[in-house]
Amino acid sequence: MMRIETTDASAGGAPHKLKVATVSLAGCFGCHMSFLDIDERLLPLLELVEFDRSPITDIKHCGPCDIGLIEGGVCNAENVHVLREFRANCKVLVALGACAVNGGLPAQRNHLELADILQEVYRTGHGLAEGSRIPDDPELPLPLNQVHPVHEVVRIDYFLPGCPPSGDAIWAFLTQLIEGKDPNLGPGLLHYD
């Protein structure tokens, strides 16, 4: 098992703060909101970790990190790039929440042809303005034919399911991981819904 080391030789053996990065791919930020639901426990957590790329810090690119938390599945080209950035930089990568674990709600489009979806959403659906067309700006990431959970695209070390995982589950998971243990969700914390 991939474990976190809490001391670092390059820092003279002194404890240092672990670097944590987080991101939401094809997710709803619900897992991030749940993360904030650890409430006052955020303060002791900040004694142990500092945040790199994350909606909390607004850092745009991930540097070398100890832990990466990925919310959401992979639905477009940008998701792939971000996921790879995290994989390359994070010692431990965690799939956080139902969408990262199995594609979740967005993956329920998978039985439809993407072309049909784009056609209906931008061209033929009700209530569209005259002359509506499918966006083709190179700034916009192209959607993938299907939505995939993150483990189908890169190697993932740990999974924390739930929609969202509760604050208590996230707290239990992170504190164990930070202590260098294999996280083990006790009874009641493991939920898929």
Binding site: A77, V80, R84, R87, E113, L114, A115, L118, Q119, I134, P135, D136, P138, P141, L142, P143, L144, N145, Q146, H148, E152, V153, V154
Partner: peptide
């Protein structure tokens, strides 16, 4: 991935008519 990431963008490329570098993906 078991699937071809670049091929997974094929329908979107076709529907948008894009073929710029951002419309493609390489391997891991």
């Amino acid at each position: 991935p078991a699937f071809d990431l670049d091929a997974a963008l094929s329908q979107a490329r076709r529907m948008t008519g894009r073929d710029d570098p951002g419309a493609h993906l390489g391997d891991n």
